[in-house]
Write a protein that binds this DNA or RNA. Structure first.
Lengths: 91, 91
DNA sequence: TTTCTATATGCAAATACTGCATATCCAATT
DNA sequence: AATTGGATATGCAGTATTTGCATATAGAAA
């Protein structure tokens, strides 16, 4: 399912126009993003937690050439599913 | 930031009541969940992809006793940040 | 108040990560 | 509706990182 299809579903479920549904969805993702940018985590009970994980610099390898390369430290958004979400997929 | 605070922000940004904002948010997460339950992935351009990852059974360990235990195969919801999302946190 | 979640622990195995080319897939514009 | 530019998936090798177990506690959320 892509964003377009998701927006159609939301628009149906909430009785909104597609444009409004998309605007709503974007507002929510942007709100989450803003919090993450501010180095805050976003905890959604029953769904999961978004947080920014810091990765240290390390030595990697180009699998094509076998050559060692230096990989810079980076940050990545992580999503940790809540207990309830895990259970949905494991019973 | 927790769900309550997120709902307040959404309600402000979209000029909705808190109850409506929460209902909207829940509808969206449920829509995503339904797709995942149907073993579909959910791709949000510019944000990321939710998918269900299957994990194999393996041998684990009770950290308290050191005893080996068998861990069953399981499934987990994974979120893969989109390129744009990664760049936000690495520049 | 009562339920949910994070944290901490040791350790084996699974998985992620890297560059890059190709193939596929989307989104937006015409 | 079709085209196209951009984004993403895949595969690869080897190492680094994560995962997940049991369980109690602390802290936060409903």
């Amino acid at each position: 399912m892509n964003k377009k299809q998701l927006v159609v579903k939301i628009s149906g479920a909430l009785n909104l126009s597609k444009a409004d549904a998309e605007r709503t969805f974007d507002t929510i993702t942007n709100t989450i993003l803003d919090a993450l940018k501010a180095d805050d985590s976003v905890k959604i009970a029953g769904f999961g937690t978004y947080k920014v994980a810091k990765r240290k610099a390390r030595v990697g390898r180009n699998p094509r050439t076998g050559e060692q390369i230096q990989i810079a430290a980076s940050q990545k958004v992580k999503f940790l599913p809540a207990k309830a979400l895990k259970e949905v997929f494991n019973r």
